[in-house]
Amino acid sequence: MPTFIDEAFLQRLSNLRFIVKGRRKGHLAGLHASPRAGVSLEFADYRAYASGDDFRYIDWNVFGRLDRLLVKTYVHEADLPIYLLVDSSASMEIGVPSKAHYAAHLVAALAYLGLRGLDRVGLFPFNDQLIPGLPARHGMVQMGKILRVLRDIEPGGRTSVNRAILEFLSQTRESGLTIVVSDFLASGAEFADGLARLLHRRDEVILLQVLDPEDVTPRAAGPTRIVDVESAQRATLTIGQRTLGEYAERIRRNREQLRGLSLERGIPYFRTTTDVPVERFLHEELRRGGILR
């Protein structure tokens, strides 16, 4: 196992599992309810007996009272494909620890929870396009692969969440739980289209915004040459209290925009900074937000 995530950390997550709204279709039996009736302990409905039905599911009590052959149907517990889209653009390299590092921890934890819940988990790193990742698979072998990919990711390039989502949709047919991890510092309008298409495919989408504390509250630094790590564009600015006040307003607007987008589309949106421990974020924010239980 890569050293950047230890076993004890994963052990502490063992009491968590994903909560998925609605019933999902799945190939194999999992721990999530599926709209397909099937074999499980949870009663779903009655239907008229048809030739070929298993006699064991005929409700003989109903037949005794009503003289009709009805068959009990049960909730089919299906597995859930969990798609983890993680931003690997250059902007994620900012900070100590870097946002990329933090995101890798977070994604590893989510993958672990998914695989422990007998779900299929896929990993899709991206910058302005998808970077070769891992299609959704079961089992702890997949966990090892995910960790290796996370370890080997070199942040770089510009960000295009929208384009990455479109490529992702073209590569995956099955809808599932799609978690997008990024700093989302671009305008929300940029990836609104991609989100709409995800939702159209009936994916459940979760947005996790990872920021560096300096992204949120930068310090005054006087005359500063500001360099965009993705585009290498520059601007010179004297950073004082007034500038910082304006910047704080822009960051607040960015957040409001994302929040508005998420409310509008019914997409859970969570924000964290790299100074918040991943474990705490999982236990407090995602649990409180109804993503984990």
């Binding site: 005054a220 005359p223 790590v229 993705e230 601007a235 004082g240 910047y247 960015n254």
Partner: peptide, 22 residues
């Protein structure tokens, strides 16, 4: 260089900000 160099995630957040007079 007299100016300090600061690398940021997105220049769009900084562009057009009024600088502080010194």
């Amino acid at each position: 260089a007299r100016e300090r160099r600061r690398e940021v995630s997105a220049l769009s957040l900084w562009e057009g900000l009024p600088g502080d007079p010194q």
